[in-house]
Design a protein around this nucleic acid. Structure first.
Length: 716
RNA sequence: GGACGAUUAGCUCAGUUGGUAGAGCAUCUCAUUUACACUGAGAGGGUCACAGGUUCGAGUCCUGUAUCGUCCACCA
């Protein structure tokens, strides 16, 4: 019984993963802990954040897979009925963006394709990626139950999403409204507020004469239709003007009649304290217009070009038109001054960086009031979520995310869930051409208006991808009647990136409480961002992206896994340094060689013989037991960064440096050596599953299991 | 404009109810073919960002300041 002199991670990993898959022990039903195990009637469940099926596994995924696998393997060994449920995400907008880039490279455009054709192509693209990403997840050693794998576009998921939509509509929490939304002119879709990124920009700031007033703006191209001039009701400088007063004045394309509006939204200290409003293309202005019932007019079309209202500038792109408009205003003597370096914040599309052009558009919205009960006129989505978090029913790790989540939920605004992209779940609604009556048609059966008999127009918008993934925890467990739902819900831990706290985590909490009446998970464990070795954010443009699969190739998956975990506290970003992974590759080699040494010294050893430890053995075992208890405590406290460091330290500097050396001098018994090795491998297993399993398979121990994966943890 | 986090050895980071500072990597010295050189034994290296306060005692608790980072926000 001897191990080869070198550990070949590549060969071993594939072989061992196959062994696990064949064993069937990834499924919770298969694993039967011994009769007396105190945890055997308890369950443990993690739902894997569905991986985007639009590319390759990145460093962040590697961390997710590692942490969740550690949690899963640990609980499985403790005897819990353990389920880690894997999934894949169609990732609506994100995938569409990736695919559009691909089309662009090929000189094609999605706008010249029929929607059905585009959908078919992206389906093919996604299917390829699904296989690819699944293999990469396996490469990380994930012990998830593949027989339960789910995809966000599976029929059963869509059905649940549709039912929720219908229920929300009946509860008056969904409405169709013509409101101002974030429009990405490049991708031709609206976006939620979370899908925009604020960017600081330097622009010219123009002071323009508007009748008796001077108004300041960075966007003169939106000003064509401005016919309301707004000031604060308490501004003494303008007390001569009254609300509703009409003023004739000369403007860009000729004389107009302006109306004075008094509104408290105006900051008296900013600019001149007076502004004109463009309700169609500015959220603040939209708000003012709504409050005062003012007319709204579209100036810029959905491609970012000026409409006929701009007269001679009609059809021009706004960026081209801006200087020309200023030239004209200057010629008319309407430009008072121009500030050169005006710093302000603009919204951009978080994916492509294009400037967001606010537009008014009819969209589907989800009501998101933080108030509950009758005060809000019915049910509230946010209120129960706030209560669950406040009361500690849902715990955050690290804790300070609790405040962040609550702050967002307390200030939540209605959520635009419509997207004008094909890659997503279609919104199951129809509108009557004649009377505008809306029908939610989950089964796609309604053919004419039930009210007036008119023709129905089928909705072409799709759902924001987070509308469906926000229902993931109960949808994948086959809510409401499924056996898994009854067994594993609420789940135990939601482990994901801190950047998803609003996008995903908060929405899962709201949807789950709304639908099931229960929280979706007890603990939210948020890991930090994986950075490059220098602590810089990885990005393709910087060229500092580290491919985790290169590291597994070079140093083995086990080395990458433990390297990602040791010293990595949740919530703080972690620099991924190849040298660190290399150091843990050395540790893997150490484990291998120590095991080789033990196996080479088995002469005369019989695992079935009666155990007779010496006094010194017992002392060492006592110390080991103490360490084991400490590690178990850290594991239960989800402090994997401490637990992994402790077992690392014990194995190398106590077991190898002291105990094995002692053995050479005859100080400890053969039995002790093999006992400590076997027990250490169990503790190391969640962190470094491949190498520990490979060695375990060769170990002569009493009552050996099919695999180390289902061995009992040293502390029950 | 708000909120949150960070600041500890050259580098990356731990430090769980307050009790004379820890790990890995790096550096230096020594050992020399050992299960393992992807090795062993040892060493050097820190006013714990700064200023106050509470305490017998503060890296840890409180207040303030600075720098960095992140998130949120409808100043045209």
């Amino acid at each position: 019984m001897e191990l080869p002199s070198n550990y070949n991670s590549k060969e071993v990993e594939d072989k061992i993963y196959q062994l696990w898959e064949k064993s069937g022990f990834f499924a919770p039903e298969a694993h039967q802990p011994r009769a007396g195990n105190p945890n055997r009637n308890k369950t443990f469940c993690i739902i894997m954040p569905p991986t985007n099926a639009n590319g390759n596994l990145h460093a962040g995924h590697a961390l997710v897979m590692t942490i969740e696998d550690i949690m899963t393997r640990y609980k499985r060994m403790r005897g819990y009925k353990t389920l880690w449920l894997p999934g894949l995400d169609h990732a609506g907008f994100e995938t569409q963006v990736v695919y559009e880039k691909k089309l662009e490279k090929e000189g094609k455009s999605r706008f010249k394709m029929a929607p059905e054709e585009l959908y078919k192509e992206i389906t093919g693209f996604t299917n390829e990626n699904k296989k690819n990403i699944t293999n990469q997840v396996k490469k990380m050693g994930a012990s998830c139950d593949w027989s339960r794998e789910q995809f966000t576009l599976d029929k059963n998921i869509i059905k649940i999403v549709y039912n929720t939509f219908e229920k929300l509509y009946k509860d008056n929490l969904i409405y169709r409204g013509k409101k101002i939304i974030n429009w990405c002119t490049k991708h031709q879709t609206s976006l939620s507020d979370l899908e925009t990124a604020d960017v600081e920009k330097q622009d010219k700031f123009y002071y323009l004469k508007y009748g008796p007033f001077t108004i300041a703006t960075a966007r003169p191209e939106t000003k064509f239709g401005d016919k309301y001039v707004v000031m604060h009701p308490k501004d003494k400088r303008y007390s001569d003007y009254t609300d509703g007063q009409k003023i004739d004045l000369e403007w860009i394309n000729g004389p107009i009649t302006a109306t004075v509006i008094k509104d408290e939204a105006i900051d008296m200290d900013f600019g001149t304290g007076v502004m004109t409003i463009t309700p169609w293309h500015d959220a603040v202005d939209f708000g003012i217009a709504e409050r005062h019932n003012l007319e709204k007019e579209q100036i810029i079309d959905f491609y970012g070009k000026l409409l006929p209202i701009a007269g001679e500038f009609s059809g021009m792109k706004i960026t081209e038109a801006r200087p020309l408009i200023i030239d004209k205003l200057q010629a008319k003597g309407l430009v008072e001054k121009i500030e050169e370096n005006y710093k302000h914040v603009v919204k951009t599309c978080y994916k492509c960086g294009s400037l967001i052009e606010p537009q008014i558009k009819e969209q589907w919205f989800l009501k998101m009031s933080a108030q509950g009960g009758s005060a809000s006129g019915g049910k509230s989505l946010a209120k129960p979520a706030i209560d669950a978090i406040k009361s500690g029913k849902i715990k955050f790790i690290p804790e300070h995310y609790k405040k962040i989540a609550l702050h967002w939920l307390n200030n939540i605004i209605d959520w635009n869930i419509s997207r004008q992209i094909v890659w997503g779940i279609p919104i199951p609604a129809k509108t009557c051409e004649k009377c505008n009556e809306i029908f939610i048609d989950v089964e796609d059966k309604i053919t004419s208006c039930k009210k007036c008999g008119g023709n129905l127009i089928k909705e072409t918008d799709t759902f924001d991808t987070w509308f469906s993934s926000g229902q993931w925890p109960y949808a994948v467990l086959d809510y409401p009647k499924g056996k898994d739902f009854k067994t594993f819900y609420p789940t135990d831990i939601m482990e994901t990136g801190g950047d998803l706290i609003f996008f995903w985590v908060s929405r899962m909490i709201m949807f789950s409480l709304y639908n099931t009446g229960k929280i979706p998970f007890k603990i939210v464990y948020l890991h930090g961002l994986v950075m490059d070795a220098k602590g810089q954010k990885m990005s393709k443009s910087k060229g500092n992206v580290i491919n985790p699969l290169d590291l597994t190739d070079k140093f083995g998956t086990d080395a990458l896994r433990i390297g990602l975990v040791v010293g990595n506290t949740p919530g703080t970003s972690l620099p991924l340094d190849e040298n660190k992974i290399k150091a843990y590759r050395n540790f893997a080699t150490k484990i291998w060689n120590a095991s080789r040494f033990v196996l080479m010294n088995l002469e005369g050893y019989n695992e079935n013989a009666k155990i007779a430890f010496t006094a010194n053995d017992k002392k060492i075992l006592g110390e080991f037991k103490k360490i084991t208890k400490e590690i178990t405590k850290e594991m239960d406290g989800l402090k994997f960064y401490v637990a992994s460091e402790k077992i690392y330290h014990y194995f190398w500097h106590t077991f190898c440096d002291k105990i094995i050396e002692d053995y050479k001098k005859g100080g400890v018994s053969q039995q002790l050596l093999i006992t400590i090795l076997a027990e250490s491998l169990k503790i190391l297993h969640p962190f470094m599953p491949f190498i520990t399993e490979e060695i375990y398979q060769q170990l002569p121990i009493k009552g050996k299991k099919d695999c180390l994966m289902i061995e009992s943890w040293p502390v029950e």
